[in-house]
Design a binder for these strands. Structure first.
Lengths: 235, 235
DNA sequence: CTGGTCAAGCTGCCATACAAGAATTTCTCG
DNA sequence: CGAGAAATTCTTGTATGGCAGCTTGACCAG
């Protein structure tokens, strides 16, 4: 799970570059709009530019990075509208997944409870990276536990986008609340009430979305402006 | 839409290789397990091996082709279990999408009706390729029409897999029936009954899945066996 | 005629080299 | 001192060449 982040190695098993980058995004260590140069990655992972480029191409196909022709590769920076669409997509998909569950193996609930314990630990210890990763990973774990092998990949990419969005638009949603909501969903699952679990999931994702603020986007000076304590009108 | 298939050009605008291949899969012209050599594609599209390889890498990230190390690139050939999981995924996602619709623009229904007309034309004229393409494209068009821009891409790839699966496991589902079911779904949408539309969608996908036969898989001699009129027991 | 071994060829894999465009910097002229 | 143009640098895009591993076919022994 999260251990993969700590076991980042200097050697480069080719397609593991993708995983390291995605994990870093999930952990909130790479923000939206970050430049990912081919050469930089190549030297960082001590591989040739070719394999770095291939990793970027894979990430592009997964909707996580974008290439601007002859300008560079950048982590996606979704507009507010695109951000909303990602949340809508997640609501639809995750609700549909829960409603489509036929039988629920008991070990699924146990696994989710264990996951929630880890979430609480990360929150308590103030480990922001683990917190970000685990809060997103809950959803991946959920669909993983349901036995389908095609949905987790889809959801992982969507979750990565969500983390980027949350950082971009400064989600005010409290981590503790998210964790509580995860627990409520798990409780509903344990009780076998899939309908309620789906409803809780929809409102959970909706809550996170509702916490977004439109303010931050399309103002590249925000961080500087804040650092200099300047208001938006003041030049 | 489908016109892109006929306007296949010899020049190669780079990433359009993907589209041509996916379209060919959607039209049923490329079967599961087909070899896609780097050199072959490169000469076919008159580009270098590099860009052909990049297209294959993209398709691999989308779950449409697989690479067997130093053996070659092949269109995926899902096992029966994987096939079932793809159908489950589509059921969950498409149901969730329909249930998550808030407001339905009337032009959506019109667009879908026009699409169904095309489906019937293709069926009537015996154009198998257009038929295959359009029957799958209905689902993509549906979510496209609902205004979300992240879901269509996901669904297109899933649909491509479905087409491959249907050909692999010789779906016995009649095209006319599928078309009728599309119409029923559209009717439910037109009536504003999203709940029924979702139910119809689930049963529609379930019907296609139910038409699969387990027989064909893991027997590479099937086509030869059939050609030689040999029964499965006869050697 | 059958079974096993070896060699040649084909394939993907990776690195490198070169080309072309974009951005930035610098130089020059007003 | 400032504005515009030119040049430099940095980036991706594309092609090509060599390497390593698998597959296949031939060859040889039993």
């Amino acid at each position: 799970m999260y251990g993969s982040l700590t076991s980042m190695q200097n050697s480069a098993p080719a397609n593991s570059i993708d995983r390291v980058i995605v994990d870093a995004i999930l952990a909130g260590r790479i923000a939206a709009g970050t430049r990912l140069g081919e050469q930089s990655l190549a030297t960082l992972f001590s591989v040739s530019r070719t394999v770095a480029r291939e990793a970027l191409i894979r990430l592009e196909a997964r909707g996580i990075v974008q290439v601007s022709a002859r300008r560079g590769w950048f982590v996606i920076k979704p507009s507010f509208e695109e951000a909303q669409e990602v949340f809508q997509a997640r609501q639809a998909i995750e609700m549909g997944i829960l409603l489509a569950v036929h039988r629920l193996r008991p070990e699924v609930v146990e696994k989710l409870r264990a996951h929630i314990v880890h979430e609480r630990e990360a929150i308590a210890s103030g480990d922001l990276e683990a917190r970000s990763f685990l809060l997103g990973d809950f959803h991946v774990c959920l669909v993983e536990a349901l036995g389908n092998r095609v949905l987790p990949d889809i959801l992982r990419d969507l979750t990565a986008r969500t983390v980027l969005i949350s950082a971009l638009y400064q989600s005010s949603h409290d981590a503790t609340v998210s964790c509580d909501e995860h627990e409520a969903i798990t409780d509903a699952l344990a009780a076998g009430d899939l309908r309620q679990a789906a409803d809780l999931m929809v409102s959970h994702i909706g809550n996170v979305e509702a916490g977004l603020t439109r303010a931050k986007d399309d103002d590249p000076l925000t961080s500087l402006r804040q650092a200099l304590k300047l208001s938006k009108t003041g030049e």
